[in-house]
Design a protein around this nucleic acid. Sequence first.
RNA 1: GUCCCCUUCGUCUAGUGGUUAGGACAUCGCCCUUUCACGGCGGCAACAGGGGUUCAAAUCCCCUAGGGGACACCA
Length: 467
Amino acid sequence: MQVKTRFSPSPTGILHIGGARTALYSWLFAKRYNGKFLLRIEDTDINRSSNFYNNSIMKGLKWLNLNWDEGPYFQSNRLARYNYVIKLMLENKIAYKCYCSTERLLNLRKKQITLGKKPKYDEKCRNIPDDYYNSNISYVVRFRNPKKGKVVFLDQVRGKIEFWNDELDDLIIKRSNGFPTYNFSVVIDDYDMKITHVLRGEEHINNTVRQINILQSLEKKAPIYAHLSTILNHNGKKISKRDKDSFFDVLEYKKLGFFPEAIINYLLRLGWSHGNQEIFTIKEMKKFFSLKKITKSSSLFDKKKLIWINKRYMNILSKSDIINELKIFYLKQKVEIKNGPDIKQVFELMKNRCSSLTDVVESSRFFYEELIIDYEKLKENINIKNVFILKFFLKKIIFFHDWKVEKLSKLLKLCSLELGISFSKVGKIIRLSLTGKEHAPCITSILYLLGKKKCILRIKNFIKIFE
RNA sequence: GUCCCCUUCGUCUAGUGGUUAGGACAUCGCCCUUUCACGGCGGCAACAGGGGUUCAAAUCCCCUAGGGGACACCA
């Protein structure tokens, strides 16, 4: 039997961290057993589904390199199949037409809730003859759920889960607009598409038993289920794809210049473990991934750890790949790199101090753009008297020709010695004049990369402003 | 309200009857250092509570509490 998993989002929201993890686990599980991973778009809710979300979900998956071997299938293209099965179910009395109005259902619910009962359909139409109502009256189709006994299934992460059938009611499988509902279409699709393992969020545990009942009524075998716990936000609340907070938007991390490999690595460890290992290559993930090691409890999304992993990947990933990507980010952030230092060298200087590619671009902007010195702001931070240090240094470098890191370092030390001023004071004002910032990478590297001409220009400008 | 699921440092987790309860992120301290970072070393920090079972319980059983989910013509 070939393993086949699926990711089946509904295009009613963006691909968020939680969805991405579900997709990752499904993908990994399939890959682990040389199986297939399938993408299915569950768009039976025509009012809320949109093409925009469709595209954004697929874009996110592709960016993360979670490529599907089959699909994407769209449920909206499979209506004929669903209707065919529903017709059969009607004929076999597995399902029945329900003519109850939305208002009646709503009132029923209200009444049950106020009475402290579990809201359930009261089966008003369960036993009426097929031709009882005029055929023009709109109706829905309900599944005739078994009334006795219980449903049991072995969840791959949680173990045995059981529900009494009398907790369930006759769910709608076909809406009055002719579209099937989730719980029905998912059953037909998983069966038709030969899905062997269903990995999905734990909010579906309750649905699973309903789905198993439908499957059993059709005399079909159920797939193996694994329900993943929820990823919560920093407040311990469930994150939702309708969440406006871009914090959980996968594509937002693409925009910020995070590495897909790092996101994958973070997501893998959020709810799964392999001893004490934190960093995994894709190959290792495929080799080690197992359902048994997935945690049952829900976990909080921790951006700080994601950042740490992303930093690690600055050093793990192929340098030339990063450089190519980095070029795109300079372009996007409108930094003209043509007339500045080589970005390979700049990246070397920045990689251990930046958390993402946009961070690298922003932190290295000063290499490529003219400085805008905010006099008023700096005035408070520097001792204007110290400008003489710059004048001294300027004289030194005008006639300095051996523009190399080690030589510049020596020159700097010499200045500090000759002036009788601490290295840190000398460095501070030079750094400020060259970068406009108080904190920057190693001063000699900056001198070197910026080049003599620009250094002289910047120092002169700086002196002018503060005189 | 009913049903289902969950509970080890602040966070992610290791742990399957005997451990000084381990690691990572975060945090704090020290070292390195011309700033900031990086790096190195170290510290703080957890078995939700109560009952059992057992020579022995984070680990097995029961109860309680807390958190989450489901109860739609959403998925």
